[in-house]
C-alpha cells in the first residue's frame, strides 16, 4: 500500500501543477480586461492589454463614463435581456410542442419531416444565412426583432433534444390521460410539460447563452442603433475615434458579468445544457 502511494505522488504533483498553470493561463485574458477597464482607451489602442495594474495611470473614468454618458449602452443591454428572455421562453415552449408531436404520434410524413429537422440542425447556419437574409428582406422584416426571433422559434436542435427526452416517457401515461378525458393538447400541457422540467433547464441555458451572445445574424438584420443588442452595439464601438475604446473595454467587461453570475449559480445545468448535443442519438 505504501509503495503504491509513493509511486503515485510525483504524478499527483505533476497533474496539480498542470491544473494550476492551465487555470491561470485560461483566466489571464479576464484579468487583462479587468486591468484594462482602469486604463484610458487611447492608451489601450496603442499599447494593447497587459497584466500590470499601473496605479500611476489607473482611474475610474471609464466606469464614470459608462454610467453617465454611455450613449446607447444600457439600451443595448436592456434589448439583449428582453430579447434573450423572450427568445428562451418562446423557443422552449414551441420546440417542446413540436417535439411532443414527433415523440408521441405516428403519422404520415413523420420520418420525412424529422429528416428536415435533422438537416436544419446539421447544416451550418452560415450556409443558410444569405438565402434567409434575402427572404427576410422580401418579407420587409429587416431591422425588426421578428427577423431575429421567428426563424428560430421552432428550433431544430432543441426539438431534437426534447424528442429524445420524450421518447423515454411511457405511452401508458398518455393513455391514462386520454381515459381521464383530457384532450390531446390537455395531455401535453397538464401531463407532459411538468415532467419535462429537467430538460427545460438544460435547454433554457443553451438557448439563453446562444441568444445573449448571438452575433452574426443580428449583425446582418439590425440597422438602427436603438435596436442593437449588446454584442452588435459593442462591435460598433470598435473604431479608433473618440472615447469609444474606453466604453468598449468597460462595456465588454460588464457584459460578461450577468452570464458569469448565472454560471456560478447554475454550473451543473450550464454544463448539461452545453453538452446536451452529445447525448446518445
Amino acid at each position: 500500500m505504501k509503495s503504491l502511494k509513493t509511486k503515485k505522488t510525483p504524478l499527483k504533483i505533476l497533474v496539480t501543477l498542470l491544473f494550476v498553470f492551465l487555470s491561470i493561463l485560461i483566466l489571464i485574458p479576464f484579468w487583462a480586461i479587468f486591468v484594462g477597464t482602469f486604463q484610458e482607451g487611447s492608451m489601450l489602442i496603442r499599447n494593447g492589454l497587459n497584466l500590470k495594474l499601473d496605479f500611476s495611470t489607473a482611474n475610474l473614468d471609464n466606469y464614470v463614463m459608462l454610467f453617465t454618458e454611455s450613449g446607447d449602452y444600457f439600451k443595448w443591454f436592456f434589448n439583449s435581456v428582453i430579447l434573450t428572455v423572450v427568445q428562451v421562453v418562446l423557443t422552449l415552449f414551441i420546440s417542446a410542442f413540436v417535439a411532443y408531436g414527433f415523440a408521441a404520434y405516428d403519422f404520415k410524413f413523420k420520418n420525412l419531416l424529422f429528416v428536415c429537422v435533422l438537416i436544419i440542425m446539421s447544416v451550418p447556419f452560415e450556409m443558410l444565412m444569405l438565402p434567409l437574409y434575402v427572404q427576410i428582406n422580401d418579407m420587409s422584416l429587416a431591422d425588426n426583432y421578428a427577423a431575429i426571433l421567428l426563424p428560430f422559434l421552432a428550433h431544430a436542435s432543441t426539438i431534437f433534444f426534447f424528442r429524445q427526452y420524450l421518447t423515454g416517457i411511457p405511452k401508458e401515461l398518455i393513455e391514462a390521460g386520454r381515459i381521464d378525458g383530457a384532450s390531446e393538447f390537455g395531455i401535453f400541457f397538464k401531463l407532459i410539460m411538468p415532467i419535462m422540467k429537467p430538460s427545460f433547464a438544460a435547454m433554457a441555458i443553451l438557448n439563453g447563452m446562444n441568444s445573449w451572445n448571438n452575433f452574426l445574424w443580428p449583425l446582418l438584420v439590425l440597422r438602427s442603433s436603438e435596436k442593437y443588442t449588446l454584442p452588435i452595439g459593442l462591435n460598433t464601438l470598435i473604431t479608433p475615434y473618440g472615447n469609444n475604446y474606453d466604453l468598449l473595454i468597460v462595456g465588454s467587461f460588464f457584459s460578461i458579468i450577468p452570464i458569469l453570475v448565472l454560471f456560478l449559480c447554475f454550473q451543473k445545468y450550464f454544463i448539461e445544457g452545453m453538452t446536451a448535443g452529445a447525448v446518445k442519438g
Binding site: 483566466l27 480586461i33 447563452m209 445573449w212 452575433f215 465588454s252 460578461i256 458569469l260 454560471f263 450550464f270
Partner: peptide, 10 residues
C-alpha cells in the same frame, strides 16, 4: 468553461 460564456465580440 468560463471562456465559452463570453461573446465572440468580447
Amino acid at each position: 468553461f468560463v471562456p465559452a460564456l463570453t461573446s465572440v465580440v468580447v
